[in-house]
């Protein structure tokens, strides 16, 4: 019962390591290195990397920028299932768009074009929220006080949902937003 007794060989650190064990340690090490290289490789050659462009902000500052963006780019308004008027805002291709996360909605509705790249600014007005684009399944944490500029290029047209997947209180399950891709 050696694992619960002191090592029988008092000079255990001098015992040679078996070849098979060395081989397994080597395999585990090499595999770790491959996984490390994959992440770096994807930063250079991959097409899906999370942006590092982030600014400190405040809810007031971010809301002001978002309202300006909405005022300048609104295409039309839509009546949602709760009877509220929600602006549908077209981001100019290659331009900046703003998405507000707050209790409990994503505001406004964004309209994008397939194959164009957009800089989407994400921030929260209150608690943490989770930007979960469905059914694409891209998930990004949205944190109050941080303005995250994510460059996105839609690859397929359609109607997409933004689910909130960071718990934000009793109305969490009603926090659903929308993105149109033409």
């Amino acid at each position: 019962m050696s694992a619960i007794l002191p090592p029988s060989n008092r000079l255990w650190w001098k015992q040679p390591i078996d070849k098979v064990e060395w081989a397994w340690i080597g395999i585990a090490f090499v595999w770790g290195m491959i996984m490390f290289v994959m992440m770096v490789y994807w930063h250079v050659f991959g097409k899906q990397n999370l942006s590092n462009e982030v600014y400190k902000t405040t809810p007031e500052m971010f809301a002001a920028k978002a309202e300006k963006f909405i005022a300048e780019n609104t295409l039309r308004t839509e009546t949602d299932l709760n009877g509220q008027q929600v602006p549908v805002v077209k981001i100019p291709p290659g331009g900046d768009g703003f998405l507000i996360a707050r209790l409990w909605n994503w505001y406004p509705i964004l309209e994008l074009e397939k194959g164009q790249t957009y800089k989407i600014h994400l921030s929260s007005m209150d608690y943490l929220h989770g930007f979960s684009l469905q059914p694409v399944n891209i998930n990004i944490e949205v944190i109050p006080g941080y303005e995250h500029v994510v460059r996105m290029t839609p690859t397929k047209s359609g109607t997409y949902a933004i689910v909130c997947n960071e718990y934000c209180g009793i109305g969490h399950h009603t926090m659903l937003g929308r993105i149109y891709v033409k």
Binding site: D80, L81, N82, V86, Q134, P135, A161, V163, H172, H173
Partner: peptide
């Protein structure tokens, strides 16, 4: 989770939400 379903979420049907989304 691979299909996108959220953790810590009470209602997959999003009752009371402003829009609809149907999980696969």
């Amino acid at each position: 989770g691979t299909l996108g379903v959220s953790r810590r979420h009470w209602d997959m049907a999003f009752s009371g939400a402003p829009f609809q989304y149907e999980w696969p």
